[in-house]
Nucleic acid binder design. Structure first.
Lengths: 201, 201
DNA sequence: TATTTTATGTGACCTTTATCACAGGTGCTT
DNA sequence: AAGCACCTGTGATAAAGGTCACATAAAATA
């Protein structure tokens, strides 16, 4: 995508707005950061990250969505969905420079702002305020992960589905039953039965 | 505990060694950081964090261990164990200033270095290098959490137990069967059966 | 040591969920 | 419109794990 494209500036604008919700960044530092960013477009089915590859980027989704999934003996197991205003990456692979054990694939035509790992680290060196932003971003991601973990350790399949309905309604609205079942760790038939039970209550 | 206590300097030394494994910190900044730290001792059964309380500290364990657990309708459900050279905290509560939904309790007489949230944030302001350390620490914690999540989403009960045997043998060695079962999300009888099956293979 | 408490092992039985099979349904392609 | 691929719903059956009951072992306490 060209820097002059309306979608480019649009995506960066959305990111800027988002950044100001988690802390401040001076105009000067925003410009430094902005110079390290690119805006990318992907089509449905494209891979943002493939197994075996080392994750080099964090993507801030501004349109569409994608999913992370493992291949377990031929079965695809979803572990996350990333929607608008969310950050998609394999953080373990990114920070520890390890090969990814899972894939991230586009589900719905995607526009995202790309943070390149090396350039981001360089920006941290240039500006403590940018590193401070990086820390706050990580704090948010850690908090979200912690919540996600509790979901899986504490709740039954049905409770997890009801949790999604309440807390992540867009997951239920935009994603197929089969994909949600894989995410919840249950068979699609079981989710179909849960769904009809919940409806009739 | 007194600052002159041998265990105090001993704990700080262990922390210092650990910090140098995740990145460098100048002697000057180490001294700044050190001034914000306290070394605490807890007895078996003590609570480091109680439900409803806002988490104000991160503890670097140097001796003994503790566990995090939810109370789900009277049943205690373990979600984590923190051993020597690990950081114990409710990161969601700490970073978002929310009440904790779970407790952290000492299982085996504990010595830990305490990072106070407010003082740590102040140290970040004083020194970008300390904030950089904070970011790297979070990156490690995020990576560990991500691995933990995959464990629960991908593996069956028996596979999870075998994973523990291989990757976290101290969990199996130091913690009772009942506590491990609660951590794995299975009945203690089931774990007992898995254990006898695994032994006889 | 004797006594009590707590943790673990094991069988019988029950509940939940997975698996297999198949019947519509929806949307895309030709 | 016909054909095809893919998704969802539902029944029958199998397997995994939970629950209850009780025996035994280990640890704590008197």
């Amino acid at each position: 995508m060209e820097k002059t494209d309306k979608r480019w500036t649009d995506a960066l604008h959305k990111l800027k707005v988002y950044i100001h919700t988690i802390g401040s960044l001076s105009e000067e530092n925003w410009l430094i950061l902005q110079n390290t960013l690119t805006v990318c477009q992907f089509s449905k089915g494209d891979y943002i990250l493939t197994p075996g590859e080392v994750c080099q980027s964090i993507f801030f989704v501004t349109q569409g969505y994608c999913r992370a999934f493992y291949d377990k003996e031929g079965d695809e197991i979803n572990t996350a969905f990333y929607f608008e205003q969310e950050f998609a990456a394999n953080l373990k692979s990114l920070t520890k420079n390890l090969k990814s054990e899972y894939a991230i694939q586009v589900c719905e035509s995607l526009i995202a702002v790309r943070f390149d790992r090396a350039q981001l680290l360089a920006a941290y060196q240039l500006s403590p305020e940018i590193e401070s932003f990086g820390r706050k971003l990580l704090e948010m991601l850690v908090a979200r992960q912690e919540e996600q973990m509790a979901l899986f350790q504490l709740l039954t399949a049905q409770e997890r589905y009801e949790y999604l309905l309440q807390h992540q309604p867009q997951v239920v609205q935009r994603i197929s039953l089969t994909q949600i079942a894989s995410y919840l760790g249950i068979a699609r038939e079981t989710l179909s039965r849960i769904r009809s039970k919940v409806k009739n209550v």
